[in-house]
Design a protein around this nucleic acid. Structure first.
Length: 830
RNA sequence: GGGUCUGUGGUCUAGUGGUUAUGACACCGCCCUUACACGGCGUUGAUCGAGGGUUCAAAUCCCUCCAGACCCA
């Protein structure tokens, strides 16, 4: 018997790692395979990959999602596209600031700004390195050479230039408006960054007295805000209070610097059945207050300052923090006998997503991206984008329906992109840098080429270099951008906006935005907003929105629940014979999970096969191994079996004299090929992988191989050609899912790697293709063949005959008459 | 409190009006058969979350409820 050219007895994690290391060894070879080559003449397929944020370990769910983006990248290369699969790292933001504060036990604002920035940079670099390694380990075919960092001067320059462009076209404005503010971290935040946490609070019923002496109770959880009360409102239909509307009502607490009573008005937002049905509206206790103030045209009071302390307005409580003032206010009300009732209540209060601090609404002069005026236009653009799965488009639409205010983009933090503006003495002129130059206005003068603009009209007045002397003292902006202001440029950046105009021409709208569904309202929405405001175009051709990685019981993985699974431990499971074990907190008790071998190929196969895009997926290493490692073993062995037979010198053209079973399996194979090609074209990973798995572990080995074994041993040329042609093309089609597996097999047996193929394999035997009479006729026999084989194996078993022993009394059905010879030989019928 | 999505054997999953509901894993039974025992073959096992409705016909469409996830107030 000839020896197989595939030496390894079976697929293993050590083999996987050997192949992987060899793959990355030569940067030239790597670049040849995976780097973006804009001059290739092929159609572009630019992927706007989600630049991960380095913070310790990379979430296994995100790694799984990322590996599917890689499947898309590789499948598009296979379909002949020039793929740009960038590797970017998102490094701006408050997270790294928190990490540094925690590590050094010092608040950011106690540092020298430059010193703090340096600390952030070195800290984030160590996290970034770990992430690069995981990315390679899971087999991402990114263009690592061109790595981009969102905190690099190049990236930040693009953000700043886009800001200037948007400012000049009127999409960005500065204004004094109520903003959501985190007093602990000292910064404005956007609506999208607010979350809600349950807290116990006191609901206090306070007695207020009307000018006519009527006493009414008003319930509030925020008595300290009474000093900012601008109006007391009741529902217009609430007959209990009709007679009081228009009257003045006395504030129950002392105040300083404002009138001591307010008018009673009506407003439809009041819930008559809540408490007494009377509501005090303060600037600003919550978002509803903001809306009422705006609708009634009231002048807001500033009760809380930037440190989160009460202003002069609060009279005796001025200078206290919000919480202290709340306590003092209750004590004061109690001592004057104005408290009717206090009850403890569970309430969801708004906190900042990053710092978990209760937020306040404060009037601040900030920069905004205008968005309320352009929602319909974004919707029109979204209509032109293909969503995968289509239903996840709803997340975007729902969020857009909720948008009622502009997007505040300025932040009072440091490790972010600086707002590129200098203000002149006269307050009428501002200075902006030239396009493509990164500036830090808090510590730099405007660079050469900067321009002076009119602050109101946005017109260019002249060049800074010429006007310098006349401008007097200039002050650089200290504030920075919201990180989403950077992230929402990612598709522009990777498509070559500003830096490579000739590439951008062909690359935009960006082919694909893959992302998780939890950041639809931020990353996806803001990116679409930008492309609408800047270019009046949809940002993407396809948006691919995946579900979240959950624990084995379907719960979110989190540190506090103790149910996380480390990505590296799964990818390394089985390397060097080391098994993996995970202790995961389940709903009832801690469960110990064990697996012997997984690795990147098995992990990718699992994610590709186990869940449709968009569904949340459960991550259980035991299941990954049990369900999918065997598939790799099987496919490996089919290839190993094939490798012991000589590879025909001409694999492209079919030899004369194919047997009927060869034609039959080729008919089946070509149907699978058609399914796979269509699925890869439509970014449908699940269907492609399922089709390959079903064919490769089912009908091919169980029926065809068993049938033609004896012919192969007899050195039958037609059988060898059929088998080798199928194995080669199978590996090619499968390469997006398991690149190292298929690379190894194809280059070992056929001398050419499947990962380098840049055209989908052609039909090996067109005369039995889908739609041909001959092909349909043969495929119609598949069920019969499988049934007949199953019955015959079952019959032998019943008779206690081993499979290689002759058996009598088995009838071959009429429709399988053409297969009589081969079936007789296969089952040793007599 | 509201919205969106999801709910199919023990586990995961296919199936968007039409025979007896797909497949995988697990379980159990049998088999070392010249690629593979990290394998092969086979048997169990689901009133398709619950209830109601539309229809000749419902896992599939509609309503109500329950559970979970995500988002929002």
């Amino acid at each position: 018997m000839p020896a197989p050219t595939l030496n390894d007895k079976r697929w293993s994690i050590d083999l996987e790692k050997r192949i992987q290391e060899a793959h990355a060894e030569d940067p030239q070879v790597y670049a040849q395979r995976y780097a973006f080559n804009p001059d290739s003449g092929k159609e572009f397929f630019v992927i706007d990959t989600p630049p991960p944020y380095p913070s310790g370990t990379w979430h296994i769910g995100a790694v799984a999602q990322y590996s599917m983006i890689d499947v898309i990248a590789r499948s598009q290369r296979l379909l002949g596209k020039e793929v740009y699969f960038p590797w970017g790292v998102d490094r701006n933001g408050i997270n790294i600031e928190f990490t540094v504060e925690k590590n050094t036990k010092r608040k950011m604002k106690t540092y020298d700004r430059a010193e703090f920035l340096e600390l952030c940079k070195t800290t984030i670099e160590t996290f970034t390195q770990a992430m690069r390694e995981t990315a390679r380990r899971v087999g991402l075919s990114c263009d690592f050479e061109r790595e981009y960092l969102t905190d690099s001067p190049e990236y930040r320059a693009v953000t700043q230039s886009i800001f200037v462009e948007l400012f000049r076209n009127g999409s960005i404005i500065e204004d004094l408006r109520p903003n959501i503010y985190d007093p602990v971290e000292g910064t404005t935040i956007a609506d999208a960054e607010v979350e809600r946490l349950p807290r116990r609070t006191n609901l206090v019923d306070v007695e207020w007295v009307c000018e006519d002496g009527t006493k009414i109770a008003i319930s509030t959880t925020r008595p300290e805000m009474i000093c900012a009360c601008g109006v007391v409102v009741v529902h217009p239909d609430d007959e209990r209070y009709t007679h009081l509307v228009g009257k003045q009502i006395q504030l129950p607490l002392p105040v300083d610097g404002r009138e001591t009573s307010v008018e009673i008005k009506t407003h439809p937002s009041v819930k008559s059945d809540f408490g007494s049905g009377v509501l005090m509206v303060c600037s600003f206790g919550d978002q509803n207050d903001v809306a009422v103030f705006r609708e009634l045209g009231l002048t807001p009071f500033q009760a809380i300052n930037l440190e989160g302390k009460m202003t002069k307005l609060a009279g005796p409580f001025a200078g206290q923090t919000v919480l202290e003032a709340r306590k003092s206010a209750i004590e004061h009300l109690e001592s004057t006998g104005k408290i009717i009732n206090i009850e403890q209540r569970e309430q969801d209060i708004p906190v900042s997503e990053r710092g978990k601090n209760p937020v306040e609404i404060i009037l601040l002069k900030e920069w905004y991206v205008r968005q309320t005026h352009t929602q319909d236009r974004i919707r029109e653009h979204a209509e032109q984008i293909e969503f995968h799965p289509p239903r996840n488009k709803q997340f975007l639409m729902d969020w857009m329906d909720n948008i009622s205010i502009d997007w505040p983009i300025s932040r009072r933090r440091w490790y972010h992109t600086e707002i590129p503006i200098w203000y002149c003495d006269d307050e009428d002129k501002i200075i902006v840098p030239p396009t493509g130059i990164y500036v830090q206005p808090w510590c730099q003068e405007p660079p050469e080429g900067s321009q002076v603009l009119d602050r109101k009209s946005r017109e260019i007045i002249g060049s800074f270099d010429e006007m310098k002397q006349a401008l007097g003292t200039i002050v650089g902006e200290e504030k920075v951008f919201d990180t989403w202001m950077d992230s929402s440029n990612s598709n522009l950046f990777v498509s070559g906006y500003l830096n490579q105009p000739e590439v951008f021409e062909k690359a935009f709208p960006t082919a694909l935005r893959p992302q998780g569904k939890e950041i639809v309202r931020t990353w996806l929405y803001y990116t679409l907003l930008k492309s609408t405001l800047l270019l009046d175009q949809p940002g993407f051709k396809h948006v691919w929105i995946d579900g979240l990685g959950m624990d084995p019981w379907g719960r979110k993985m989190s540190k506090s629940l103790g149910n996380g699974i480390d990505a590296d431990s799964v990818l390394e499971c089985g390397a060097g014979g080391r098994t993996g074990s995970w202790k995961v907190k389940g709903p009832d008790k801690t469960v110990s999970l064990r697996a012997n071998k997984i690795g990147s190929e098995c992990f990718r196969l699992w994610k590709a096969c186990d869940a449709q895009v968009g569904d949340d997926f459960h991550i259980n290493p035991e299941e990954i191994e049990k369900k999918y490692f065997g598939v790799l073993t099987k496919l490996f062995n089919v290839a190993r079996f094939a490798s012991q037979f000589e590879v025909p010198s001409n694999l492209d053209d079919a030899p004369e004299g194919l047997a009927v079973e060869d034609e039959w399996i080729l008919a089946e194979f070509q149907t699978t090929m058609a399914t796979v090609e269509k699925a890869w074209t439509h970014l449908d990973i699940y269907t492609a992988t399922q089709a390959l798995k079903t064919f490769g572990t089912g009908i091919l080995p169980s029926h065809y191989l068993e049938m033609v074994k004896s012919r192969l041993y007899d050195e039958d040329k037609a059988a060898a050609w059929t088998l080798h042609r199928m194995v080669r093309d199978f590996m090619t089609m499968f390469t997006p899912v398991c690149p190292f597996f298929t690379h190894h097999i194809s280059s070992t047996i056929y001398g050419a790697s499947a990962v380098d193929v840049d055209a989908f394999p052609s039909q090996p035997y067109p005369s039995v293709a889908s739609g041909t009479a001959r092909g349909d006729e043969l495929r119609a026999l598949s069920a019969s063949i499988q049934t007949f084989n199953g019955d015959t194996w079952g019959h032998k078993k019943e008779q206690g005959i081993s499979l290689n022993q002759p058996v009598s009394g088995v009838e071959i059905p009429k429709e399988l008459e053409p297969f009589t010879a081969i079936l007789t030989r296969m089952h040793h019928l007599e």
